[in-house]
Each structure stands twice: as structure tokens, then as C-alpha cells.
């Protein structure tokens, strides 16, 4: 699985995955708990995110393209002032907008955009296999670590298999354009499940052959543990965000 990963050797890339996951989560927590009226705080967060993206050497256009995933919510947010309830203002000579709707739209746009930007940076600087190792280091229960590991390992294999099946169907003249294509598409999904499950059975045998006992030790191998300094480096981002939030609070902007 590639995910959003962009190969690189920046300081952000080199941070252990578990540190990045926790730092990203804390940062977004600070963002979502910030009252929407503290407009300048959000500007501060945006500067922080942009700085981290620059440190990670992620090309801005690429970053924006990856952030497109939130477009449906942007559309929703844009419609809010039109359909929102409560007090309304008139702008541009006659367009009536809900004040509360404007605030809500701003709130969603700012928070969701900052959230998705941080997640994109996390994805772009962390290989999926290292995310698995990081989760193991964060002491996620063994079964969850293993399921995540199998997912990262086998998504490409199974998607390839699905693609080959689709190609084989297309080669025999199948096109999926109408509702009447559903049974055939669903049948192919059924076949895909059987093949995927049978692979799971074979993987299980291969694991038993090498003494599998249920533990998740091997899944964190090759990932680096993080000492206090590394944690401090990583958590500098949410700490800075907290400082921004504090400053915005006191300055009553």
C-alpha cells in the first residue's frame, strides 16, 4: 500500500510514526476545541501547518490536490449560509444569508481544512508499514495491530486481483453501465471474497509454520523507539498550537 506517501528524507519523514500520529491527533484536538470566533488563532494554526508542510518538503500543489478529499464538505459548508436558520444579513445587494450559517460554514471550513491538511502531511511523510509499527509501539492491542498490518500488506494484492477480474469481464464484453450489471459485479465481489479469505487461510498456515503464537512482537520491528527528545520534537507542533490558542484567548481577538 502506498497511501499518500511521498518518499523523502526530511526531519518530518524521519520522526517515528507513533510520534507523528500522536502529534497530529493532539494538534487537531487543539484546533477543534478552539471557539470559532477566535479567527486569528486559526490563522496561526494555518501558519504552523504550512511551516510543517514546508519542512516536510511537500510541494504545495500536491498538498492541495490531496486535500480535495474534503470537497463535498466544502460544498456543504458553502450552502449553509443560504439555508441556515436564524438572523440573516443581506450582502451583494439582495442575497440574504444566515449569520449563524456563515459562522458555521467558517467553523467547518477552518477546522476540517486544518484537520485534513495535517492528515495529508502525516500520510505524505509516513510509510503505511511504519504506521503499523507505530501503532504497535503505542501498545494498540495485538489483534488490531495485526489486522492493520495485513491490510497494509495485502490491499495491493487484492486490488490487483480485483482489477484482473474486471479486465477478464471486460475482455468478454461486459460493461457496467446500468442497474442490470449489479448481479455480475456482485458475483465478482463474491469470488473476490472467497479468494481473499482463502489467502487468509494460506497465510494462517504460513504463520503457524513459523511458530505463530498470537503475539505482535514482529510488527514493531524496524521502527525506532522514541526517546524523550524525539517526543518533545514531535509534540512541539501541538504545543505551539496550544500557545497560539492561549495568545488568541488573552488578546480577545
Amino acid at each position: 500500500m502506498e497511501g499518500l506517501y511521498l518518499a523523502g528524507d526530511s526531519r518530518i519523514h524521519r520522526l517515528p510514526a507513533q510520534v507523528k500520529v500522536v502529534a497530529a491527533l493532539f494538534f487537531v484536538l487543539v484546533v477543534v476545541t478552539t471557539p470559532r470566533e477566535r479567527v486569528l488563532a486559526f490563522a496561526g494554526y494555518a501558519v504552523l501547518v504550512a511551516a510543517v508542510a514546508a519542512l516536510a518538503a511537500i510541494p504545495p500543489l500536491r498538498m492541495l490536490r490531496r486535500m480535495m478529499i474534503e470537497v463535498p464538505f466544502v460544498v456543504f459548508a458553502v450552502l449553509l449560509p443560504v439555508f441556515g436558520l436564524g438572523e440573516r444579513v443581506t450582502v451583494l445587494g439582495g442575497v440574504s444569508l444566515s449569520v449563524e450559517g456563515l459562522w458555521a460554514a467558517w467553523n467547518i471550513l477552518a477546522k476540517a481544512t486544518l484537520g485534513v491538511a495535517v492528515a495529508v502531511i502525516l500520510g505524505a511523510t509516513t510509510r503505511p508499514q511504519d504506521v503499523v509499527g507505530g501503532l504497535a509501539r503505542l501498545r494498540l492491542p495485538a489483534l488490531l495491530v495485526q489486522i492493520t498490518g495485513f491490510m497494509v500488506r495485502y490491499v495491493d494484492v487484492v486490488v490487483d486481483e480485483a482489477t484482473r477480474m474486471r479486465t477478464a469481464m471486460a475482455a468478454r464484453g461486459f460493461t457496467a453501465r446500468h442497474l442490470n450489471a449489479w448481479p455480475a459485479v456482485a458475483r465478482s465481489l463474491g469470488t473476490l471474497f472467497v479468494r481473499t479469505y482463502e489467502r487468509g487461510e494460506r497465510v494462517h498456515v504460513a504463520m503457524l509454520s513459523r511458530g505463530y503464537d498470537g503475539s505482535a512482537k514482529a510488527w514493531s520491528l524496524g521502527t525506532s523507539p522514541a526517546g524523550p527528545t524525539v517526543w518533545a520534537t514531535g509534540l512541539a507542533l501541538p504545543a505551539a498550537a496550544l500557545a497560539v490558542a492561549g495568545a488568541a484567548w488573552w488578546s480577545t481577538w
Partner: peptide
């Protein structure tokens, strides 16, 4: 096993090669 994709079930090569020794 015949299909290396069944044998190599870990996210990285080193983890896979370490899997047996860690269990043993």
C-alpha cells in the same frame, strides 16, 4: 509455500524474516 505473497505476510521484509525467530 508456493505463492510468496502467502509467505510474506508482514508489512516489511525484515519483519517477515524476523517473524519466525521471534516466535521461536
Amino acid at each position: 509455500f508456493q505463492d510468496p505473497d502467502d509467505q510474506l505476510f508482514m508489512p516489511t521484509v525484515a519483519q517477515d524474516v524476523a517473524f519466525g525467530p521471534l516466535n521461536f
